Computed example of a mutant assay.
Amino acid sequence: MKSLKKQRRIQVIAVAAVALVLSTVLIGYAMRDGINFFRAPTQVLAEPPAPSEVFRIGGLVTEGSLVRGQGKTIQFSVTDGGATVPVTYTGVLPDLFEENQGMVGTGRYINGVFEASEILAKHDETYMPKEVVDALKEQGVYKEPEG
């Protein structure tokens, strides 16, 4: 009688373990397209990602690099103080987007140009994404906000 209870308990634990592993694999598979890794311009130039890889890039918009093309196509460069990456974006830029300000873009790095599908700009005069601050601090160009 005791061995039957013990056997059932082992079966329940085994089924629960298999279910846990299976659910973890399914969640990971479902999220694989939703995970975008952050890279600074220096990292992008040091180890260029595959053209099919979607990732986020961030830094400061280089002064004098903002060029508006035909239609809604915009070209600019983003820097972390150590390297500069050219960016193209087709769409409407956020209202707070401007030169010498922090930005984060999501897209692909193709033929030496980051083709952004989404651009985010700072939301007030002191905000900058943590990843951008960390990348700028590594390059030694980050300035603490005053006040």
Rank of each mutant, 00 (worst) to 15 (best):
A17I: 15
T73Q: 14
F76T: 04
Q11T: 09
T73K: 15
D95M: 03
I10H: 14
V113S: 01
V85E: 00
L26A: 15
N111E: 15
Y127S: 15
A14M: 08
P41W: 04
I74V: 15
V18W: 02
L45S: 12
S117N: 08
I13V: 12
M103Q: 00
F55N: 01
E146N: 01
T106R: 10
F55M: 11
K2P: 11
E115Q: 06
D33F: 11
V67F: 11
Q139Y: 01
P48Q: 06
L20T: 12
P48K: 06
G140H: 03
F114N: 00
P48N: 07
Y29D: 02
Q43L: 13
N111P: 00
Y127H: 14
K5D: 11
G64D: 09
L93G: 05
M103R: 00
I74A: 10
R9N: 12
D33G: 11
P41N: 05
A16R: 07
M128T: 12
P86S: 06
Q139M: 09
I35E: 13
A116W: 07
Q101A: 13
A46F: 02
F55A: 04
A16I: 05
R32M: 12
I13C: 07
P94N: 04
I119T: 06
R8N: 10
G28H: 09
T88F: 00
E125P: 01
D80A: 09
V78G: 00
V18K: 06
V78L: 07
A19E: 13
G91C: 05
Q43A: 15
A135W: 01
F37R: 14
P129A: 11
V113A: 01
K2T: 13
T73I: 10
M1H: 12
K143D: 14
G82F: 03
T62G: 00
G34M: 09
F97C: 04
R39H: 13
V18M: 07
V54F: 04
G59H: 03
G147W: 04
L120M: 10
